[in-house]
């Protein structure tokens, strides 16, 4: 009975969605509203208006920078949610599966990870700062940083990683992504322009260009570092073995 109900509901949803998709403008049409209304301005003037060769970066950081500030806060709230439920690990005392295991990690694996970690980090920073002329950007770079440190933790164990990057050092870095946006926004407000405007008045044309580039880079780095550290913190608080059990009874 329940199965039937679910099937009927799914069928109704599916038919509705397919009907809507069928009535959508065809993907390759050049006259559909999603290609003629807002997009031409982005494509035509995006580079000089938004200050990024990659239009996507221009839209993400400039035209719709406020949305990106919100998205960054979504990641931050996900971190807060995980920490609030699972609690943070203890510096140097928390253990993961590798610490607890009797078998030592293979020398080959540790050597290769030691060698490739800096290279991956370099690539991550490149992705972060090269988001302006080419695909990539802060978030992707941050994810790569996070993945590389997660790799390190999987191989060397949580005790070692938390000694290298203790919770106390991570806490300020976790909100760096929001603080990057907010500080750039408040700088704009101090100069008397709108929030998250990157062209500051009272500077020469060349100086304004440089300042804009600098501000966009600060934001990219903030998104990257904050995002990466948030990934790391989430994973750390999930893989620790000494986590609290859920309370069974009502207090």
């Amino acid at each position: 009975m329940k199965r039937l109900l679910v099937l009927v509901a799914l069928a109704v949803i599916g038919v509705t969605l397919l009907y809507g998709i069928g009535k959508m403008p065809p993907m390759d049409s050049r006259a559909s509203p999603d290609k003629t209304h807002v997009v031409p301005r982005y494509l035509g003037h995006g580079e000089e208006e938004a200050g990024a060769k990659n239009i996507i970066t221009g839209v993400i950081l400039n035209y719709r920078g406020y949305d990106t500030m919100g998205e960054v806060s979504v990641i931050f709230s996900a971190l807060c949610a995980v920490i609030a439920i699972l609690d943070r690990e203890k510096k140097g005392r928390s253990r993961s599966g590798v610490d607890a295991s009797r078998v030592r990690t293979s020398l080959i694996v540790t050597t290769v990870v030691r060698f490739s970690l800096p290279v991956v980090m370099l690539f991550a920073v490149y992705t972060m700062l090269h988001g302006e002329p080419s695909p990539g950007g802060g978030f992707q770079g941050g994810a790569i940083v996070g993945a590389s440190i997660i790799l390190f933790t999987i191989v060397f164990g949580l005790a070692v990683s938390t000694k290298r990057i203790p919770p106390g050092a991570r806490v300020p870095m976790e909100s760096v992504n929001m603080l990057g946006f907010l500080s750039m926004g408040f700088i704009g407000l101090a100069f008397g322009v709108q929030f998250l405007t990157y062209i500051l008045p009272g500077l020469g044309v060349a100086a304004a260009e440089t300042v804009r580039k600098l501000m966009l880079d600060v934001i990219e780095l903030g998104i990257g570092i904050g995002g990466g550290i948030i990934f790391i913190s989430i994973v750390f608080s999930m893989i620790r073995e000494d986590r609290y059990e859920l309370q069974q009874d009502v207090p």
Binding site: N54, G131, P135, G137, Q140, I144, A147, I150, F231
Partner: peptide, 14 residues
Amino acid sequence: PDLALTEAAVGAGV
């Protein structure tokens, strides 16, 4: 490509 990079790093990785 931006989305592809994100999908590869976050979806397939993290």
